[in-house]
Nucleic acid binder design. Structure first.
Lengths: 210, 210
DNA sequence: GTCTATAGATTGATAGAC
DNA sequence: GTCTATCAATCTATAGAC
């Protein structure tokens, strides 16, 4: 890591260790040790451990969520232009696909997406709050669009089905290696294409259930 | 809490605080302070913080999982006896219903079930390992029975759909108050009946998707 | 069984030399 | 920008009096 800046070294190492062991079980000493930089460098470059976490989310999630938001709106606009009802599968794809493709785009983004999958279910406020700040506007948009696509559903039913959807997606994003409970000799492929093609039919059927 | 034994006071307070703030963000000082007992009492009665957590899981999960296992086997036996295929909805109900009913059976079990929902997705090994020790046999049984009920599904597809199912269920179990992202003025009811009637159609449709 | 007191380890953050 | 050294707070676990 000698050619990279100290700041970038810290970012890369931190997002890997946060994803593997969680924010609170990763000490600044472990991060700076593995990154090969000085302990004090974190506070010099970022200000605090929390600010380091915020910088990681900011760096990845702002551009990624902009794409997801645009994709969602494109589905709605297209349906209005053609005067056709929206397909739930298209909505889900707009929401899920950018994330999983981003995950497969490099070895480092893989760690970040696992971190995102954890964040919603973190027991501690610190991580969850930072994450929800980024997700909330997108979640509301998704809810509104799904409400439009499934107008016959009770609001409460849609709410619970959306919660199921979010739970399933974040669980899949979180799965990395040791968390698998694989029965017998199954070694499921985990590339973006496979996951997308598995997730969308499941969730579409669930959301459209009678 | 004067009438209860010190041991039971610790158990009750610990499962509440573990559920609300997570295992690692709950210190023995907070537990003993709120329980009104001495700090050293935890180590006297349980041996260690980890052993306290194990005792909590043991206490609730052994009888609960025995019921779930019996229910699952009853669905399979009934189908064999009548020589009829199993219904996915019946399988899911056997798996989900005892847990949510147990949750509503008292104000204390509610905390424990929220703790269970967190445990699968804990970033730290300690909690996850203890929980998986209890879940694993039941998870394998569920997988085998679903394989029998959905024989046309590829093993890999069934695997991913089961993961989605587990993710959705644990997410719903984990939801308590502040974790909700409720759009507009929706205040969804959270009693066991409602959750069961919301979860089962969603998951059945997802698992049976083409 | 219950208590006080404390050991022993780890953490995030910072002061100050270079 | 980078380093060493250290502070101050937190934690689990335990020893020993009662």
């Amino acid at each position: 890591m000698a050619e990279k800046s100290t700041r970038q070294c810290i970012l890369d190492t931190a997002e890997k260790l946060f994803a593997l062991h969680g924010y609170h079980h990763t000490s600044l000493r472990k991060i700076t040790g593995e990154a090969g930089v000085n302990l004090a460098a974190v506070n010099y470059h970022f200000g605090s451990k929390k600010a380091l976490l915020e910088a990681i989310f900011e760096y990845h999630l702002v551009p990624l969520n902009r794409i997801r938001q645009e994709n969602l709106k494109a589905v709605r606009d297209r349906s209005r232009r053609l005067n056709q009802p929206m397909e739930v599968a298209d909505i889900l794809r707009a929401f899920i696909e950018p994330t999983l493709r981003y995950r497969d785009s490099s070895s480092k983004t893989r760690y970040f997406i696992a971190l995102v999958g954890q964040s919603m279910t973190e027991t501690d406020d610190t991580v969850r709050r930072i994450f929800l700040r980024h997700l909330r506007p997108l979640g509301f948009l998704l809810y509104e669009i799904l409400k439009e696509a499934l107008p016959h559903l009770e609001p409460e039913t849609l709410y619970w089905r959306l919660q199921c959807t979010v739970g399933a997606i974040s669980h899949i994003m979180r799965l990395t290696g040791d968390m698998h409970i694989t029965p017998e000799g199954i070694h499921p492929s985990q590339d973006a294409e496979t996951l997308i093609e598995q997730l969308i039919p499941f969730l579409t059927a669930g959301l459209e259930a009678p």
